[in-house]
Design a protein around this nucleic acid. Structure first.
Lengths: 198, 198
DNA sequence: TCGTAAAGTCAACAGTTGATGACTTATGCT
DNA sequence: AGCATAAGTCATCAACTGTTGACTTTACGA
């Protein structure tokens, strides 16, 4: 894509195009090799430009990472603001956990960050997104004494599944389809609701 | 500890002692800063010796990491070879997931690896330990068509909880005690058993 | 067509990285 | 006491890191 783009039109100068080429190359590299395993020269080479443009356009490698990996929380998460928590889980499982197989670059940014979680700044960004955006959705929809704890357990399950597939690459979960998994996950989440409020 | 050790007995040459001092320093550093965030000179300085000894005694930084972070699967995991899967989950939750708070260095190696999962070799080691040693325990105790998938879902839940506490540092799960959590986790796992074999 | 501002490149720096080989110092046996 | 061997150290390498400023080339409006 980047290749073809730059080959068809030999060397057309275009700031916006270069910027997004850099961004896409960064996403791929970071996804595959993590933050520390990726050098600015690698990214620039993939994008077909000079490495110094990274600093021109983004300021620093860290800032490029942050922007490359930033993700907006999906708008209509569980189809409607006050929907069933179970529907929300199902939607999240489908849309974020099971949207990471096909090719690197299509993997969800959450797990890209997970793979680069050695850096404190990356951890901070990860915490902000997971807690501030995703978990909040659950806490709002749950009721009872330990709603927050139960919300985080759901989050842990989802993140754990993604982790098993994305970084550990465990056999069964990696091969399993969304349809095979959703029923089991739903059962686990349902049990959490039915558990007596202590 | 390392400090006092070497200060009390000014400079006693002892290969075994130096080796394990290096190993302990490595564990602490890797735990806190991850693989890439830790240099061999940092480790050696903490251990109070020269960095070149790392290569003398371990061969390479990677080999030191592998040895520092290697963990033997706890012997009597669920108290007895053929025990209830629920008891196994409870034991694992207590012994590996909830044994990571107090101080760095006491954190479970599994999560140290998780935080350094950018490196492919670390991922390989992680997969080997999780799949080969821990998950096998579950698969053996479960029955039904999709035993393996259900085993990995249990693993995902446990790993996810550990991750929430260890790298994401989510509020509720990080503060929660083992006693507060075990009941909810047990309920989720039980639901998995009762789910019809498809 | 020409000139100017933007887009892209080059060379280089200062620091760090893992790793090696030759060197020095202490230890323990005879 | 003296010597061989092991334990520890020093200087150094070569590669790579993110980042910077000055330089060259292209695009585009006048």
């Amino acid at each position: 894509m980047t290749y073809a783009d730059l080959m068809s039109e030999p060397k057309r100068r275009n700031k916006a195009a270069t910027r997004s080429a850099l961004l896409e190359a960064a996403r791929r590299r970071f996804t595959e090799h993590g933050y520390d395993g990726t050098g600015v020269r690698d990214i620039a080479a993939d994008a077909g430009v000079d490495a110094t443009l990274i600093f021109r356009y983004f300021g620093s490698k860290q800032a490029l990472f942050a922007e490359a990996v930033r993700v907006e929380v999906p708008e209509g998460l569980g189809r409607g603001r006050r929907s069933d928590p179970a529907a929300l889980v199902d939607a999240l499982l489908r849309e974020v956990v099971f949207t990471d197989r096909p090719e690197p670059g299509a993997e969800h940014p959450l797990f890209v960050m997970l793979r680069s979680a050695g850096r404190p700044e990356v951890r901070a960004q990860l915490r902000e997104q997971v807690c501030g955006e995703y978990l909040a959705e659950f806490t709002g929809r749950l009721q009872g004494a330990d709603a927050e704890l139960r919300a985080e357990l759901i989050g842990a399950l989802l993140v754990g599944i993604g982790l098993m597939r994305s970084v550990i690459d465990s056999p069964a979960l990696s091969e399993a389809s969304f349809e095979q998994t959703r029923g089991l996950v739903a059962a686990m989440v349902a049990a959490l609701h039915e558990a007596a409020p202590h």
